[in-house]
Every structure is written in structure tokens, then in C-alpha cells.
Design a protein around this nucleic acid. Structure first.
Lengths: 345, 345
DNA sequence: CTGAAAGCGCTTACAG
DNA sequence: CTGAAAGCGCTTACAG
């Protein structure tokens, strides 16, 4: 690979001059600039970002640690993060925690070793001493979707309280009383909050949420399967299962189908997170939609604000209920759920 | 951030000695090693990979450019790539082309600027002069899933011919004669090959594939929607639509539903790529499954072979047909498709 | 076993 | 406007 020296030699100038034209420093003669550009072109020269970053102490790179790449929610989040970052002149490196704290920390460390300018993380289960240290050390950082109490960094997330209230009201109106939830890990904020919001909303309707109706999941499909199996083995199974994310809803569907049961006739299903496939399941799944794109963009803006020395802003956006047929219909059998075309983005 | 100098000072040795213990060079006295390790611990020292890579001219990182992060197939591929790479001591940086050649080239350049040791790419539509250059320049590279003719690098991919023959035989046996395909971009190998395999298989049954039954898609959902709309507007619409990837199948479903039609009663659907949701759609979707995890792992092994100076191997793995209900049933209405629990990985 | 020194490819005061 | 030189944080012959 051609280095800046080669370019300098070919252009007949010093490396300092080459560097100046590369960084569009004003004081370069038109002639020198021309010769340098020609040499760059001729040699197919590309600056070595490692060397540049080592010298300038900035990488113009953001790290993003997501909880699970197989989860369409995080994948959509990653996409919007990357777009916004690029628009602001940064690139992003993604790490997949796979819902495992050790793997999360592994990626955080790797990212830090690469000297990223800032870190976006959606913390996996449990507390991470490492993340505390990182924040304390002053590394620019923001939490997205999930956050860790006691770590003083901006948080960008969706608030599902209202949507969960709407969901419970919807279920209540349909006549359902035995509502169960498949929760995420208690140590994650989204795991915890969704259960508590669900419990509070039920309580507002005079309904209790017995322990047997709280399935312990980990946001991955297999756990949704297991929790649903347990619900179905109960003497009095729930009428509705609310999965705290889309993958656990997938697992729930697997279990329901394996038992030869029908949704919503035998048991109803609702999910947190809305994904394009929910329109096409049999029946379509009632879900709570997050403004995923907005979250990703706001998170990047907050992080870049910190990196560039501006005051960052925590952002909380509302989630919203999307009623479909998976918990039963208010009025008999519908001829055909005529939902229009749906964007994939 | 503490640097190697700080560690050296704290341990009372030279930076050379610190470097030696960090790289487990044999000739270091036990005492020096102990003091260095203590200093590392005390300072929370982490080597700066930028500096190390600049010096050693290797980054121990692989670049992966996938066609679309929103496509579960690529997301699964990315996951297996990352796992295998980690097992071999490499980390990977992912770039999302979003099916756009310019964005692909952008990521290839960014990755190269970071001096990755090798590049894994699934080329987007069209020819990329850049990729030709990269290969010619001797950068370790392998194609995965899709490849570009004329670029002499190993290819790791699935062969769908046999599975497509099986699919057509299945459709034929069900009595279907008017088969349509939603193709990927003609310039992608997977776009092209799947159409040709489909055409050949039909021809073996004495069936023609009229141009009107070839929808031009781009592997993304919206194009599947558009192509299906066009099929449905035909005087004689097809009986079956075969989508060349899962996202276009999603789009097809959107269009079919928007028209108030039923699968398979009004029109049948099959897809290349199998994803967990296909089990739960109404009805479950007949699909061609790729050995995605295997592909990702084989691609990494081939790339690392090149990087480390061993002879690499191209790999072609068979895809296989998974028959479900979306093209009709051989024998009346089944009581319940009793598919067992399904792994998400 | 250990350290001084060179050098990887850049950027950026400093002097002219 | 331009170049020589220092220095970012490492690694690695070289000499001892």
C-alpha cells in the first residue's frame, strides 16, 4: 500500500504538504495541491486511518453493542444508528452481545481497545462493573433501549407504560382475565419495567398477576418456548400470553403450535416490539410498536453531542399499541383483516 | 488512558520488557513479569490496538460486507461469521450495503482504510470495479453467498439447483402449471442462478417460464410487493409465486393480503431462504433452506487460510426444500401441521 | 534477560 | 506557502 511518503515523492513535495491537502488545510499553493492530488490518484493512495487516529487521538468511530443480532428490533436499531452516524461523519462498529453479559463486556473492551470515540450500549442481563468503570472514566457513552441504574449517562429509550395500559384495557374489554407475561431478565430495565407496567395496568382493572403467570425469559426464542410450556402445564392456564419481546413471542408460538392449540381460540398472544411478520402470522399478532428508527437516531445524536463537547439529551419516546387478531375479536369473525401494505423499514 | 510508558515506569522496567510480557515473549524474568503484570492490573492498562497494528501491520480483524442487515439470512450469516472468527482469534467489522453498490463500495473502502486483514463480501447488484482492484491488489478476500464472475477469489455458497428442482416437482405434482418467480437483481449470481434453475426445472416438466412471470426484484420487501402486484394484474395470473429470498416473500404476502386473497387457495407462495417465522404464517411457507451457519463458518476458514498463508478452499453446500402448506396440500385439509419446536439459530 | 533506538504512517506546531 | 522534526503507542532487531 502506498504511504504518504510515496505520494510526497511522486508529487515532489514534503509529507507535510501532502497531509495538508488531504486535510484541506487552507495554506497550500494551488500548484502543490494539484500535484499532490494527481499523485494520490495515480497511486490509488488511501490514508492509513490507524496512523491518523494514533496521531490525532480520534477515530471518528462509534461503538454499538446490541443485545442480539438475531432480534429484528436490534437489527433495525443498528441500521438507523449506522445511517445517522454516517450522516454526522462517523462510522460504527457493531458488537453482538447475544444477551450474554460476558460477551457484552468482551465487545466493550474490544471497542475500547480500538479507541472508538464513543459507545452506544443496550446492556444485557445483570450489572456490568466494566460499564460502570467506562462511564466513570469519562468515555462518551449513552444507553439505548435498556439502561443501567447508577450509571450516569444519557438514556434513549421507549416508554411502554401507556401502550401496556392500552393493551391490558383491550384484553379486559375482550373479556380476558387470566393474563400472563413472559418477562425479560429481571436485571434488564426493559425486562423489569414491562412486567411492572403490566402488573400495574392489571391492578387498575382489579386483576392480580400471580407468580405462576410470570414466565422468566431472556429475550430469546427458546425461553419463550419454555415459559409457554410451563403456562400450558398449569391446572389453570392463562387466557393470554404477553411476550416482552418479539423473539419470545416466536418461541411462544412454537410451543402453542407444538401443543396443537390455536390462537386466539385456545390461547391469545400479544408481544412487545412490532415486526413485519406479525401481519402475516395466523392470526396477525397484536403488538406494541417502538419508534425504533427515531431511537437509533436520537441515541447517535446524544452520543455525538458528548463526543463533540455539547450537552447531550436523554430522550424517551412513547411506544404504541397495534391491535390485531391474536387476542380475539371484538365482533365475531372478520371477513378479512384488510391491513394495507406495510413498510419493511 | 494509561500507555505502555506508564506501565513501564510503574513496574520499573523498560517499555520493551512490558511489551515482551504482554506478547508472552519467553525471555522475561519471572520477577519482571510479575511486576509488569501488577502494574498492568493497577493501572487498568489496555494496549492500544491502533499503535500495535500500525507497527505489526496486522489488525487481526476481518471485514464482512453483507447485502442487507434487515435480511434475517444475512444476519444469521453475520452471527456465524463472528463466532467462527472469534474462535480463530479474529474480530469482525460488519458493513451493511443495503443492496446498494455505492454503499457496498463505501464500506469496502472504509474497511480497507482500517487495514483489516481480510475481506468477506456478498456483492450487491452490479459489477464493482473496486472489488476487482481489491482482489488484484492481493488483499485476502472471499465471496460468500453471492460472487462476482471474473474475480479470482474463493467462493463459499449454497447451491440451490437440486432444491429448486425438488420445489418445481412438488408444485407440478400438486397440479400447478403457471409458476412465476420474483427474481433478485440479474447482476447478482444468486439473482440470476435462481431464475435459471427455476426455468430449467420447469422446462424439464415441459413448462415454459414466460417473461410476464419473471418479476424483477432487488431482494428487498418493497420489490416483492411490486412484482406481485404486477402478477396479480395479469389477465392470467400465476398459480404460484416463488420469491428468490425471504424479504421478497414478505412483500409478496403484503400484496396478496392487500388484495384480499388467500394463500394457497387463491395463489400459492414459496420462498428461497427459510426463516423461523415461515412456520407461523397463515399458512406456513414452503421454503428452501440454506445451511447458513455452515456457510459463514466455511467462509471464515477460507479467508483465514488466505490470511495465514495456507491454500484456501471454495465450498458449495446444498440447499434443501422444506415443504409446508403455502402451495396447497396433496391430501385435503390437514388436521394441524404438527411441526415440532424449532430452533431459532 | 534487558534496554536504547528505530520505525510503522500519520499530523502539527515551529521556523522560515 | 513549505519543510524538518517531534511524537502518537506500540514492537522488534541489535547489542550487551
Amino acid at each position: 500500500m502506498a504511504s504518504i511518503k510515496d505520494v510526497a515523492a511522486q508529487a515532489g513535495v514534503s509529507v507535510a504538504t501532502v497531509s495538508r491537502v488531504l486535510n484541506s488545510h487552507p495554506s497550500v499553493s494551488p500548484d502543490a495541491r494539484r500535484r499532490v492530488l494527481a499523485a494520490v490518484e495515480a497511486l490509488g493512495y488511501r490514508p492509513n486511518t490507524l496512523a491518523r487516529s494514533l496521531r490525532t487521538d480520534q477515530t471518528r468511530t462509534l461503538g454499538l453493542v446490541i443485545s442480539d443480532v438475531l432480534n429484528p428490533y436490534f437489527t433495525a436499531l443498528a441500521r438507523s444508528v449506522e445511517e445517522e452516524a454516517r450522516a454526522l461523519g462517523y462510522s460504527v462498529i457493531i458488537g453482538n452481545a447475544d444477551e450474554q453479559p460476558e460477551q457484552q463486556d468482551h465487545h466493550v473492551r474490544t471497542l475500547l481497545d480500538r479507541r472508538i470515540d464513543g459507545l452506544l450500549v443496550s446492556p444485557a442481563d445483570g450489572d456490568s462493573p466494566l460499564l460502570h468503570d467506562v462511564a466513570r472514566a469519562g468515555t462518551p457513552m449513552v444507553f439505548v433501549d435498556r439502561w443501567m441504574p447508577g450509571v450516569d449517562v444519557p438514556v434513549v429509550r421507549a416508554d411502554g407504560h401507556r401502550a401496556i395500559q392500552d393493551l391490558v384495557a383491550h384484553l379486559y374489554a375482550l373479556g380476558h382475565r387470566r393474563l400472563a407475561i413472559i418477562a425479560g431478565p429481571a436485571a434488564t430495565t426493559t425486562g423489569n419495567e414491562r412486567v411492572e407496567a403490566f402488573r400495574a395496568a392489571m391492578s387498575a382493572h382489579g386483576l392480580a398477576l400471580p407468580d405462576a403467570y410470570i414466565g422468566q425469559g431472556d429475550f430469546q426464542a427458546a425461553s419463550g418456548r419454555r415459559a409457554t410450556e410451563q403456562f400450558l402445564a398449569l391446572p389453570q392456564p392463562p387466557e393470554i400470553v404477553f411476550a416482552a419481546d418479539n423473539l419470545m413471542a416466536l418461541g411462544a408460538l412454537d410451543a402453542i403450535r407444538a401443543h396443537g392449540l390455536r390462537v386466539p381460540g385456545d390461547i391469545g398472544l400479544a408481544a412487545f416490539d412490532d415486526i413485519p411478520w406479525f401481519v402475516h402470522t395466523g392470526p396477525p399478532i397484536t403488538a406494541i410498536a417502538q419508534p425504533t428508527g427515531e431511537l437509533g437516531r436520537a441515541a447517535v445524536r446524544a452520543l455525538v453531542d458528548i463526543v463533540e463537547g455539547r450537552p447531550p439529551q436523554s430522550v424517551t419516546l412513547p411506544a404504541r399499541l397495534v391491535v390485531r387478531g391474536s387476542c380475539g375479536e371484538r365482533s365475531g369473525e372478520p371477513p378479512l383483516p384488510a391491513s394495507g401494505p406495510r413498510s419493511n423499514a
